Simulated scan of single mutants.
Amino acid sequence: MTLRVGIVGVGARAEIGRWVNDAGVDARLVAAVDVRPEAAARARRLFGDDVAFVTSLDDLGALDVDAAIVTTPDDAHADAAEFLLRAGVAVYLEKPLAITVEDCDRILLAAYESGSRLYVGHNMRHMDVVRRLRDIVASGAIGEVRAVWCRHFVGNGGDYYFKDWHAERARVGSLLLQKGAHDIDVIHWIAGAYTEQVVGMGDLMVYDRVTSRRDNSDRLLRDWFSHDNWPPEAQIDLNPTVDVEDVSMVQMRLSNGVLASYQQCHFTPDYWRNYTIIGTRGRAENFGDTEGGVVRVWNRRHDYQERGDLEFPIAGDAAGHGEADQLTMAEFLGFVAHGGSTATSPVAARQAVATGITATQSLRQGSVPMTIAPLAPSLQHYFDNHQVPA
């Protein structure tokens, strides 16, 4: 039977819907939903005239879809996902899962009570740089992991996150969710445990100085993005409200004793992530995070040695995470059609968001140490038995 798939939200991330028909699973994109009637033209450009356009989830339900891809703004994730799950529709939910811990748990509860399949699009678990680092850890080449550091240079931050709703606390919580949830999830996955305690520090240091403001709701990212938008203070047309931090730092203690840190800056000239994994017998670090980069391992004692003792090339995702998007969509559709394990995990997605939210609370309350709210045991048990990560 061909899976009938809809996409909810025809914004910048809706492009992932184009992978549905080519995912290697018998599936077809049949509908697009957006509350803005003017989004119909974008839906036609992305998906063609054969994909129906509707303006409500009720209308989508009338089209008898089996699965839906939710790419709405972050603050709309919980309502859309709960509605669909309780209607018996399998859901691919873009990360972050939601912008509050309570909404994360509401989504998981809807999946638990309905039995509908829930998949969260943490596509970085399919990126080669992450797989390479995880394989190195699994091989024992650096011993037992004891510390993980991640520095995220968000060189496109001004264009990506400060010209639309991403710049507003009320819409995203903080960029430790929108951006940090990716890396926190990777830290958890590689280290093999979730965060229990956090301390956060951060500030809005640059983009609050930019006085050029505009309501960009009539445009999308592709309309204003350019590497020529430099230096950061010279940006134009920032969102009317800018109240999220553009620099954030988080210290984490994981349940297995691993210590981790995550740093994020949205006004660097370069755009990439650097992970350093330190074990009892060595360390691994990536230089570049897409095609052409490398992961290097140091596991013998010596003074400074630039190239390390071992070197592994990074393959795929030459232009970003497009290849990971394709793999993630194929995994979701396969999960809907056949069940089984997935590399991503709703519980892991919840724990990444809970860490980011709690770290944000810490940094906004004077960097006080805070503890992550636990997940209800019934939900943990359900997902452990129905969607065990591969």
Rank of each mutant, 00 (worst) to 15 (best):
Q380T: 14
A315Y: 12
Y304W: 14
N274S: 07
E94P: 08
S139K: 05
V91S: 09
D66S: 12
I16D: 00
A337R: 15
V10T: 02
P346A: 07
D203L: 04
R28G: 08
G173H: 10
H166M: 02
G155P: 07
W189D: 15
A191H: 08
I277Y: 04
R273A: 14
Y207R: 03
A343S: 13
E94C: 11
M124Q: 13
H302C: 10
L375N: 09
P231F: 06
D303Q: 11
V25D: 06
E94V: 04
H126I: 09
T290Y: 11
D203M: 12
E144R: 15
R131C: 12
V120I: 13
H302Q: 11
Y262W: 09
L221Y: 15
A359F: 07
L3Y: 12
Q361K: 13
R307G: 11
A52H: 10
E285H: 13
A191I: 08
R307F: 14
D215E: 10
H182V: 00
C150L: 01
R125I: 03
A67Y: 05
E82S: 14
M124G: 01
P240V: 04
H266W: 07
H152M: 01
W189H: 15
E311D: 08
P96F: 07
V54C: 04
G192T: 09
N123H: 14
A27H: 11
E168L: 14
L175A: 02
T55N: 11
N156V: 13
A87H: 00
F287K: 09
F267Q: 08
V258Y: 05
A359E: 06
A348L: 10
H182T: 07
G257T: 08
G140N: 04
W149H: 15
E245R: 04
G282K: 01
I372G: 02
A111N: 05
D74R: 06
V353I: 09
A319C: 06
Q387L: 14
L259G: 01
Q235N: 11
P269A: 13
H188G: 07
D223K: 13
G356R: 06
A90F: 02
Y271C: 15
Y119S: 05
E285K: 14
L63K: 12
R307D: 13
N216K: 12
D218F: 06
V54D: 01
E196F: 01
D208A: 13
V294P: 05
G173F: 10
V30C: 11
A81E: 00
G180Q: 04
G288Y: 08
D246E: 07
A390C: 12
P369K: 03
G366R: 01
D317E: 02
V154P: 01
H386D: 09
D215C: 12
V89Q: 05
A52P: 02
G356C: 05
V297H: 05
I278M: 11
S174A: 11
A81C: 01
A337D: 10
A330L: 00
A343K: 14
I277P: 03
S217P: 03
D105W: 04
